[in-house]
Structures are given as structure tokens and as C-alpha cells.
Design a protein around this nucleic acid. Sequence first.
DNA 1: GTGGTCTAGACCACT
DNA 2: GTGGTCTAGACCACC
Lengths: 124, 124, 124, 124
Amino acid sequence: MIAIDFQNRKPIYEQIVDRIETLIVNGVLEADSQLPSVRTLAVELSINPNTIQKAYSILEQNGYIYPVKGRGNFVSGNEELKLRKKDSVYESLRETVKKGRELGISGDCMVAKVREYYQEEIEE
Amino acid sequence: MIAIDFQNRKPIYEQIVDRIETLIVNGVLEADSQLPSVRTLAVELSINPNTIQKAYSILEQNGYIYPVKGRGNFVSGNEELKLRKKDSVYESLRETVKKGRELGISGDCMVAKVREYYQEEIEE
Amino acid sequence: MIAIDFQNRKPIYEQIVDRIETLIVNGVLEADSQLPSVRTLAVELSINPNTIQKAYSILEQNGYIYPVKGRGNFVSGNEELKLRKKDSVYESLRETVKKGRELGISGDCMVAKVREYYQEEIEE
Amino acid sequence: MIAIDFQNRKPIYEQIVDRIETLIVNGVLEADSQLPSVRTLAVELSINPNTIQKAYSILEQNGYIYPVKGRGNFVSGNEELKLRKKDSVYESLRETVKKGRELGISGDCMVAKVREYYQEEIEE
DNA sequence: GTGGTCTAGACCACT
DNA sequence: GTGGTCTAGACCACC
């Protein structure tokens, strides 16, 4: 469910935060369902529990999950979050389009690519 | 020509590498034309010469520029690099589209955004 | 394991890169084994950590090693690199033979020398 | 007759020294024949006259050429020099063989390569 | 503890 | 003047 890329320059805790956010936003993890415990996940991914803890605190801070004392962490049901996540995709899209334009790639070309990549995913 | 964002997570030397690569790829810096000297650019951007040196040596390793002893650094004429640089933009686009689809954004919506962002840059 | 020749024209960081590449290619350093830390090696060779850092980052760029954040640098398992490294020796051999022939050294003589030098190393 | 590689890390004056030594040793430049003047060669190779001057001084110091006031530089007839030049080839051969052995290349393999490269040159 | 980035300042070789 | 190497010392993020 969660794959860590140790060679990536993105911090591990950030990879985890990102991945869980995605899972929550597109409904794989349902509202009020329980997340794996810090220790369990740490063992499973064979990384330091502190790192998981940091990821969970950030998720809590951003409103994606809520802790229940002595029971564990649960998925929050806040709908507003999906919008925020989408915004970050748009932002990334904006940056990429900007870079492409600087390199002299035409808008039509990029639109064509978007269509192609979008289909690609569906077929897979 | 080159603007540094000191707040950015991306290291300064990488910002410089990226910027110069872009300038070379889209033809602003022509083949065999001379780059600003390490010291000159350092003063101009008010950063340490070592940082410029690091950027230049990476550009050299990647084949974008070549040094001539006692004279300076010059733009390499390798055409293949331009294609490779563009490919990296396409790859980034592909990933973003994938993420967007996972979040349930429609293809048409993303195409519209691309058109919008592309125009945005032109108008600025 | 690594000896630095401070008199040599070849920069220190390059001597380190070369030595470690050799150790990796001939299997002394196995895939996924950990390299000495930047600071440790710096103390051991009594040179500046920055110089080790430079060597390591070049090894990374060339695909010989990979860093894991907060843990250290590890040997990459890429087999293709070993062939490439050997090719560079063949190329150097080719150039030397060419030069020797230009000076009128016979092929048999050079072959004899190769045998001699090869044994020399073994006896040492 | 003399080709300069501006991208090479070997200094230009050294490239010139090396090349002229080779031309003298294998008899292309005969004893007591005149070398091109500093200025002529500088123009021809489009490099700074100082650099040519430096190369000529080193050649003189090593006994390869001798200057005649007001006339120019001439090739020395010293036979001993050829031996010295050959020694440098042997030294380079020794280093290459050593590197090859470190990388696990067998002696027989290197001998075979030497034979191959030697023939290559003859056929060309 | 680890790697990575940056600064300041020095020295060298080459043109 | 140019690029290139090295040192010393600082700071940061990550584990």
C-alpha cells in the first residue's frame, strides 16, 4: 500500500504523508477507518518509528486524520481536504506547463500529451 | 537573466543549473558563446563563487558547457541534450496527469487548465 | 584501503573516486554494503570532509553509490558500470600501444612488457 | 601536424611539447631542420605566442631543440632522447596494466588486446 | 549520528 | 584575467 523510495531526495516522512493523503482523498481509506499503528507500520516499512510518528503528526495537523487516546489514529471525514489536494495538482501542472513553455514546447503539443497520458492510465 | 530564490528548498546551485540549461535549450544562449565568468556571476547574484563553480561543473558533466583553460566557459553545441531536457518535462507532465486522474479530475478539465496556464505565461 | 598521493597532479577527490570505483568493480566492496561516512573517511585520510563529499557526489552521479538520508552511502548494484570501467582501461591500452608503435617499438616487445608488468604486481 | 584539444585538461603547452617530441623521436622532424617560428605557429594554431614560447623553452631544456639567435629553433640530433621517450611509453603501459589487473582483467586478455591494437594500426 | 549546502578565503596552473 | 582545487567552519534536514 505504501512504497518508500530511499534513494529519493524527498524525505521519507513526506513520502508517507503524500501517499496517505492520496489514499484518503480518493477514498481508498474510508472516513473513520483505522490507520495502522505507528509501530506496525514502522516494522512493515522497516523504518524508524519516529519517522512514522512525524508523518502522522503532520497528517493530524493538516486535518486528514485524528487520534483517539489508547486506540489509535483514524481517518477524518473532512470533505474540504479533497479540494486542497486537487489544488496542489493544479499547482504542479502550472509549474510543468511553465517549464515546457520556456523550453519552447507548444501549448497544443502539451495538450496532446495530457490526453495521451490520461488515456494511458485508463487502459492500464 | 538568472534569478535566485533564496527561500526555495531547491539548492542555489541547482537553480542555476536549471536556469542555464533552459537558456541553452531554448536557444537564448547560442553554441560556443561565452558564459559569464565564475567570479563575475558570483558578484552579480551576490553568492559565493564556489556555488557558481559547482553549478558550472555540473553543467560540464552533463555536457551543456565546456571550459577552456584561462579563457572561460562556453556553450556546447550538443543538440541531443535539448531533446533529453524536453523529455524530462514530458515525464513530469505524465506524473502530474496520473496524480490528477487518481483524484478524479477529468481529462478535459486538465486540458483546460493547461491552456489557461500556458496563456497566463504569455500575457505576463 | 585508500591511499592518497598528495604530490600527484591528479586531484585528491579524483584519486578517491578512482580508487572506490576500482574497489566496487573488482568486487571488494559488495553491492548494498555501506561506505565509510564522509566525516570518518575525512579523519582517516586526514583531508577535509568537503573533499570526500565531492568524491561521493561524483560517485553518486556516475551511479556507483547511492545515499540514504541520515544513514549513509551504499554501493549500488549496477553491473553495467563494471563493463564501462573496463572499457576505459582497454581504451587507454589502445592509445599506449599506438604511441609505442609510432616510436618503433615492436609488438612482441610490448607483449613481453605487459607480461612482465602483470607479474610484477602479483609478486608485490 | 599539431592538433590542440582545448577541452583536454592537459595544458596546451604540454600538448605541444608532447606532440613535437613525438615528431622528433620518430623522425618526422629530421635533425637540424627548422621548426616554425613562435609567431607563425601561434597564428596557425590560433593560441597565445607565450604558450608556444613556453613549449619551446621546455623542448630546449629537455634537449630536443636548440635555438640559433636571429634565425630560429632547430631540431637537435641527440639519439639518447629516443630512449627516454620510449621509457615514458613503457611507464604508461605499466600503469595501464596495473589498473587492468586491479579490475580483474587477465594478463592473457591484455596481451591479446595489445596484439589486436598493434595490428589495427598497421592495417589503417 | 548521517549527508548536503553554503560561505570565506587561500592557492595553483593556464592564457 | 580565467577555471579548478582545497581547507575550515558553519548550518540544515533527516534518521
